[in-house]
Design a protein around this nucleic acid. Structure first.
Length: 885
RNA sequence: GGGCGAUUAGCUCAUUUGGCUAGAGCGCCUCAUUGACGUUGAGGAGGUGAUAGGUUCGAAUCCUAUAUCGCCCACCA
């Protein structure tokens, strides 16, 4: 025995950071676009720089890392490009909160100071997150780390904006937007969430009508009363009729509007409209060319039109206004149990107040995009790439969700009134007469004309998703080339080696929750700018939820599981495998610590397999020719081949959980519990070494740290890291020999089962001079923990319990009195066989079955029947033997 | 209101385009050994696949309804 280099238990924490440093030093994660190998690339979804990694991040890092490491093992040149996201809105919210806590605000500190603080904050977050990604074992190419706000990306953003503007895809207009008065910005439709709230619903008298509202504070300027054109109750009123009405602050002139947007079945069927603060009302006003008046300021307070209520926050004003109307005798009734949805900004949680603002939009319906030789709208391109299967979506059912989203897609509002982000590349100036000019360009305008004021850049920034939409290709542009503004965007793409080698990327692996925010928008921008799809496959994983099925949320700190605490307690590999075990595309998983311990144990199992093999193989066997000789050798070699093929196939199809389950069973059941136990009788050293190395490679994508630690500790290959090893070459095995081992397994299992149930030990297995059993007697004896396996002699009893699972005639030498207890089990087995025979027979009697089922299935049934009948005969004989004796 | 998903062992979940006796981890019961591993080994119990119909030679899988839970989209003044 050689000296043990591996300690008894695997203590992950002692090795992980050294192992990661080793990988980085070896540069195995660095991609090489000049390589002759097949290129394989994944863009890492850049996590928001808002703090620390969550279990959700841990999941995507694990899945992508498995894909990346597996691709390397298949001999591909792999680029897994990492990055982080500046996360405009969430970061803004955090900084504004910080300022508020300090008793100041962004206007007081100014844009420069605000941005300085923000940079400091995201810088700290970024460092934390990058080190956490490394701790997860991410085999990303850190030499190509990108950031959504870096200079190259900024140029790409500007180029894209200018190109779209030139094509008329970007326009500026007054539209209703979702205004957040707290953050003083608008947010996109997708960022608005609705929560149900119980409130009051008021009915007021409005001239001859009764109108309902939940928001009396918006009603000051309401001078249009709308009803459905077909509503018979109001047939006497004509579109355009005017009348005088006594209202909140005195009499006003109202106008009748007939519009189909009014629902005759809701309330009285009559409503007044507030076009400035409601999308539906805005659309009605647009259709009929009506006036629009702002009632509520951008800070959420009432304007001068509210008279005595001006400057009041809307919440304070509401009851007072109702009070006033009631005193005027205009309040008809109040419903206290009115349930309605309140719009909230998902980031920052401010209540949304629809407002009309001058904003920048992307037109999704204009047919100017050249795609596959045809002019199409952005919307049509989005639809066609999925419909035509240019991009495969996994799981497929998300196609429906995707198409449904696109069908309802409106123009994308891309401007934000926050400071942290890519500034809109538009400049304005006016001359002394008040004439205005607009400049849209990649770089600021430099000309300074007489009589004009200086150019001023649009104060707004772009929606974060506008920049992250460019992620797959902007990150592949050569950063030095990008500094050269004499090159066009097309030139940059054409001359960037990474773009040529790695785009389109192979797969976008991300959560289903950002399918619309991000994935769809990457498709939109990438097809438009580069003429390529951004990725060939989309794999959507589910959310990691708390064990009770609820979201892990900051409001319930006890629900949050921090990956770091799991790593320090159980090790990274255990965490990774716990995340993969049982995961399926698009489905959320409820996640508890229970799974982690099991996988920590699995790491330890692997560790001890290595420890054992190291202890038995002799020095000389290294580099020896691994060849199967025994039945067990052939069987395990055969199992390895099958496992390796299936795992590769599973991973190619993104069946992570299946691949892992297969690996787990192969290592624990086949290798450890059967093969190694068997090999204790007579170890085949070169084969053991081959098996260990193959298994380390196979397990490496799932458990990179423990496998590499073993590899390095054994140090069988100087200067080589496991992370760069290709998948093992298969050695040939003999199928008949492999089947022989299955026969041995059956004998061992049954012998174990019988001795166990009869609580006997030190039993002999006797046989009628069977050479096969004689050859393998040592193995059978050891595995089944028998006293001996030997041919029966004349003096031996033939009354023991015969094994029924094997074709070899053999029996356990157990005395009659004890053996009798086994009759019940035989009877039970017999009953099972009888019923299955009946079932199989009736199936085979069925003409339809014989005609319709594939012949392979029918043959299988016939074989099953035969086997069951054979077994039944044996069992009957056994039963007979016991009953007559 | 429109759509999507889930419902499988006590718990958490798989089951790869319909076909062997529906599997795994944890938990549970019994036993073993401590010479790779107690973070172990062996044996075992436990499922009418939510319910009711249908299609099919054959259904957890496809279809239709129902129930419960979850999610997405739209949003009504």
């Amino acid at each position: 025995m050689i000296s043990m280099k591996l300690p008894k238990n695997y203590e992950a924490g002692e090795y992980e950071s050294d192992i990661y440093a080793l990988w980085e030093k070896s540069r195995v994660f660095v991609a090489n676009p000049d390589s002759d190998k097949e290129h394989y690339s994944i863009s890492m979804p850049p996590p928001n720089e808002t703090g620390t990694l969550s279990l959700g991040h841990a999941l995507f890092i694990t899945l992508q890392d498995i894909l990346a490491r597996h691709a390397r093992q298949q001999g591909k040149d792999v680029l897994w490009l990492p990055g982080t996201d500046h996360a405009a809105l969430p970061v803004n919210a955090i900084i504004e909160k910080q300022l508020l806590d300090e008793g100041t605000n962004k206007h007081e500190v100014g844009r420069e100071e605000f941005l300085r603080r923000t940079r400091e904050f995201v810088g700290n977050s970024r460092n934390t997150m990058l080190s956490q990604m490394r701790a997860m074992g991410a085999s990303a190419d850190w030499t190509r780390l990108r950031y959504t706000l870096d200079d190259t990306l900024n140029r790409c953003v500007n180029e894209t904006f200018v190109k779209m503007y030139g094509d008329g895809l970007i326009y500026r207009g007054n539209r209703i937007v979702n205004w957040d008065p707290n953050l003083e910005t608008n947010v996109s439709d997708d960022e608005v969430i609705y929560t149900e709230e119980k409130g009051k619903f008021y009915t007021f008298k409005y001239g001859p009508f009764e109108i309902g509202t939940a928001r009396p504070e918006t009603k000051f300027g309401d001078k249009y009363v709308v009803m459905h054109p077909d509503d018979k109750r109001y047939a006497e009123y004509n579109h355009g009729d005017t009348f005088e009405v006594e209202w909140i602050n005195g009499p006003i002139t109202a106008t009748i509007i007939k519009d189909e947007a009014a629902d005759p079945n809701f309330g009285t069927g009559v409503m007044t409209i507030t076009p400035w603060h409601s999308l539906v009302d805005f659309e009605i006003a647009e259709r009929h060319g009506l006036d629009k008046q702002q009632i509520i300021s951008f800070h959420g307070k009432l304007l001068q039109i509210a008279g005595e209520f001006a400057d009041m926050p809307i919440h304070d004003a509401r009851p007072l206004i109702v009070d006033k109307l009631a005193k005027k005798g205009l309040l008809v009734k109040t419903d206290d149990n009115y349930v309605h949805n309140v719009a909230i900004n998902e980031r920052g949680k401010g209540v949304i107040e629809p407002q009309i603002r001058l904003q920048w939009f992307v037109d999704v319906n204009k047919t100017v995009v050249l795609w596959k030789g045809k002019r199409q709208s952005l919307k049509e391109v989005l639809q066609s790439v999925i419909r035509d299967e240019d991009i495969e979506l996994i799981p497929e059912r998300f196609q429906k969700v995707y198409f449904n989203w696109i069908d309802n897609l409106r123009d994308w509002c891309i401007s934000r009134q926050i400071w942290w982000g890519h500034r809109i590349p538009v400049w304005y100036r006016s001359d002394t007469d008040g004439k205005e000019e607009t400049y849209v360009g990649v770089k600021p305008p430099t000309d300074q004309s007489e009589g004009w004021h200086e150019w001023e850049q649009d104060p707004d920034t772009l929606d974060t998703w506008f920049s992250s939409a460019l992620w797959t290709w902007s990150t592949l542009i050569d950063q030095r080339l990008a500094e050269d503004y004499s090159l066009s965007l097309e030139d940059l793409l054409e001359r960037s080696p990474d773009f040529k080698a790695y785009h389109p990327t192979n797969v976008m692996e991300t959560g289903w929750d950002i399918l619309f925010f991000w994935v769809a928008r990457m498709i939109l921008s990438t097809t438009y700018v580069t003429g390529q799809i951004p990725f060939k496959d989309i794999y959507l994983h589910g959310m990691v939820r708390a064990e009770d099925g609820k979201k892990m949320s900051k409001s319930r700190p006890e629900s949050i599981i921090d990956p770091e605490s799991i790593i320090s307690e159980y090790g990274t590999d255990a965490l990774r495998m716990a995340l993969v075990m049982g995961v399926s595309p698009g489905n959320d998983q409820n996640w508890g610590r229970g799974k982690v311990a099991a996988n920590r144990n699995f790491c330890n199992k692997l560790w001890n397999i290595a420890r054992y093999i190291e202890s038995v193989v002799d020095e000389g066997s290294r580099g020896g020719d691994a060849k199967p000789t025994s039945a067990a050798d052939h069987w395990i070699t055969n199992r390895l081949r099958i496992s390796q093929e299936k795992i590769t196939d599973d991973l190619d199809k993104y069946r992570f959980s299946e691949a892992y389950a297969r690996l787990y069973r192969f290592i624990w059941d086949d290798l450890a519990d059967w093969y190694i136990e068997t090999s204790k009788a007579e170890p085949n050293s070169p084969l053991l070494i081959y098996l260990l190395e193959s298994v380390l490679v196979l397990a490496h994508p799932f458990a990179p740290f423990v496998t590499e630690t073993i590899w390095q500790t054994l140090a069988w290959h100087d200067n080589a890291v496991l992370a760069s090893q290709p998948i093992s070459t298969i050695i040939n095995s003999d199928d008949d020999q492999a089947r022989n081992f299955s026969e041995l397994q059956a004998i061992v299992s049954e012998a174990r089962s019988i001795t166990k149930s009869l609580k006997v030990n030190n039993v002999k297995l006797l046989h009628e001079n069977q050479p096969f059993l004689e050859e393998n007697s040592a193995i059978i004896k050891q595995l089944a923990r028998l006293q001996a396996v030997s041919p029966a002699t004349n003096t031996d009893s033939h009354d023991g319990i015969y094994l029924t699972a094997t074709r070899y005639k053999c029996w356990l030498d157990i005395d009659k009195a004890k053996a009798k207890a086994y009759v019940r089990e035989i009877a039970a087995k017999k009953a099972i066989q009888e019923s299955s025979i009946a079932q199989l027979e009736s199936r085979l009697k069925n003409k339809n079955y014989l005609e319709n089922a594939p012949s392979a299935v029918v043959d299988q049934t016939k074989q099953q029947l035969e086997a069951a009948q054979d077994l039944l005969v044996t069992l009957q004989a056994e039963e007979q033997r016991f009953s007559t004796s």
